[in-house]
Amino acid sequence: MLRGFDGDRQRLGNAEKFLMHLIQLPSYRLRVESMLLKEEFATNMNFLEPSIDNLKLAAQEIKDCHSLHEILYMVLVAGNFLNAGGYAGNAAGFKMMSLLKLTDIRANKPGMNLIHYVAMQAEKKDPSLLKFSEELPSLEEATK
């Protein structure tokens, strides 16, 4: 209605005058949203900063966890063995999303899959490897 108004602008109320000036600004909506974002940024950062710090700590723990690295290497070796002779055999690494598929690779034993096999091999090699979660105390909080 204000865009179509062609009468005397002096007769408009203060709110209508303000809106008339506002809608004449280019990209006024984007400007108002930007100003709101700028005002709320410090509050949002104070709220998010502990979570960000926790994520950084968890990432450092994962980086430093030798037991986890050893188990992931065992997963890589098992995957290379299963894929030997194919295009995926002799891989130098794997995508983290492929870890979700470890439970899908079943053995001929009932209730046994690749993650069970890797856990059994880790236990044979060094039982302390299976306690890698104790080396990652911040990980559970970081996943939240």
Results as ranks from 00 to 15, higher is better:
D53F: 09
M45K: 09
L82G: 05
L55T: 12
M74C: 05
L57M: 11
V77R: 05
A88L: 13
L68Q: 07
C65P: 00
N46E: 15
G85N: 11
F41K: 02
D64G: 02
A91L: 04
E40S: 14
E61L: 08
L68M: 11
L57H: 10
S51Q: 05
A78R: 09
A91T: 00
F41V: 03
I62G: 00
D53E: 14
L72R: 12
V77L: 06
G85A: 00
L68D: 04
K56E: 15
A58Q: 04
I62N: 04
I62K: 01
L55G: 11
H69T: 08
A92F: 02
S51D: 13
S51N: 15
A91N: 09
N54G: 10
L57W: 06
H66L: 10
L82N: 04
N83C: 06
L76E: 12
C65Q: 00
V77C: 07
F41H: 09
M45A: 03
G86A: 02
L82C: 10
N46G: 08
A42W: 03
V77M: 03
F81W: 11
N46M: 07
F41T: 11
T43P: 04
L76H: 10
L37E: 15
L72N: 09
E70N: 10
L37I: 10
E39Y: 07
E49G: 02
T43N: 12
A78C: 11
N90H: 07
E49F: 01
A91W: 01
Q60M: 09
N83S: 08
Y87E: 14
N90W: 04
F81D: 12
L48H: 13
E61H: 07
F41C: 08
K38E: 14
K56I: 11
L55D: 14
I52C: 07
V77H: 00
N83I: 00
I62R: 07
N54L: 15
S67Y: 15
Q60I: 08
K63G: 13
F81V: 14
H66M: 13
E40Q: 10
L36F: 04
A88H: 15
L37K: 14
I71K: 03
Y73K: 08
H69D: 08
V77Y: 01
N80E: 11
F47E: 15
N54F: 07
Y73S: 05
G86M: 06
L68C: 06
N83D: 03
A84R: 15
E49K: 07
I71Y: 01
L55P: 03
L48V: 05
L82V: 06
S51F: 05
V75S: 06
A88P: 02
Y73M: 06
F81I: 15
A84W: 12
L57I: 14
P50V: 06
E40A: 13
F81L: 14
D64F: 01
G89K: 03
G85M: 06
L72Q: 05
A78L: 05
L76G: 11
E40G: 03
D64E: 15
V75K: 03
L76P: 03
K38M: 06
L82T: 06
H66S: 12
L36S: 02
L57D: 10
A78P: 01
F47W: 09
D64C: 03
Q60K: 15
E70T: 07
A88I: 04
G79V: 10
E40D: 10
A58P: 06
D53S: 10
H66G: 05
